[in-house]
């Protein structure tokens, strides 16, 4: 049996790294006394995973953790126990249980929805329109671990449509970003690409990035929830 829970990474702890987030979840599972399965051997590892990696500074309302259990546990009880064992900045929103051999959530994630808020008084409507009409938008993203320092990507492959609106001296962008087995792109690179192609001066370093949802696609290509229909909502 595999427990799957939708959890958050809220504003107050947005600056913990992905690795720190993973360690925190693992310790919370132990504190919650959820009967997680462990690998064999002298250095046993807890069998759990997160559905996607989140950048430092990015807030999320839909992270997913999957925990392989060594013995069954009721979904509601497990979710309640984990809630109590998590630090203030992480909450459990929903949970379900599937068979151990059910495909990993990480493999099923097809995309993520984002909201990006930046302080900006300049005009962005034209840029958004041009972006939406463009066939392709090439961008060299930094790839510090590779030999060549940059990797060219087509932003439009990941993000086909972009919406924006203005509020109190800020611009709020919303969009969906595709996740493929080969990876995805960072929300912050969308801003970099917009600045580069449309001569905007969005202050990228001040961007407040929130991941609103993570979703999979059904057979018809429609967005649907990562969890099953009988998931428990907290």
């Amino acid at each position: 049996m595999k427990l799957r829970m939708q959890i958050t990474k809220e504003k107050d702890i947005r600056f913990i790294s992905h690795l720190e987030y993973i360690r925190t979840i693992e310790r919370s599972i132990r504190r919650a006394r959820i009967p997680a399965a462990y690998s064999e051997g002298f250095n046993p590892h807890m069998k759990f995973s997160l559905a996607s990696a989140l950048g430092v500074g990015v807030v999320s309302y839909t992270e997913f953790v999957e925990i392989e259990l060594s013995e069954p546990m009721e979904v509601q009880a497990a979710a309640a126990a984990l809630s109590k064992a998590l630090p203030r900045g992480i909450k459990v929103l929903a949970a379900d249980a599937v068979d151990t051999h059910h495909a990993a959530l990480m493999a099923q994630a097809a995309g993520a929805s984002y909201r990006v808020t930046v302080p900006y008084t300049g005009e962005v409507a034209a840029a958004v329109e041009a972006f939406n009409a463009a066939e392709q938008l090439l961008f060299k993203k930094a790839a510090p671990k590779r030999k060549e320092k940059f990797k060219e990507i087509d932003v439009k492959f990941y993000i086909s449509q972009l919406a924006s609106h203005r509020q109190d001296g800020e611009v709020i962008f919303t969009f969906d970003c595709k996740i493929t087995p080969g990876g995805s792109m960072k929300a912050v690179d969308l801003l970099n690409a917009l600045n580069e192609h449309y001569a905007l001066q969005l202050p990228v370093e001040k961007a407040d990035i929130e991941r609103l949802s993570l979703y999979r696609l059904d057979k018809k290509g429609q967005k649907c929830s990562m969890l099953t229909a009988d998931a428990v909502h907290m």
């Binding site: 702890i13 947005r14 913990i16 919370s28 500074g57 064992a85």
Partner: peptide, 20 residues
């Protein structure tokens, strides 16, 4: 400690608390 400050320093979680 705004987003731009915390994203520019090493190990920003040193400064934000909220631990269990």
């Amino acid at each position: 400690l705004t987003i731009d400050i915390l994203s520019s320093v090493q190990k920003p979680a040193r400064y934000t608390g909220g631990e269990f």
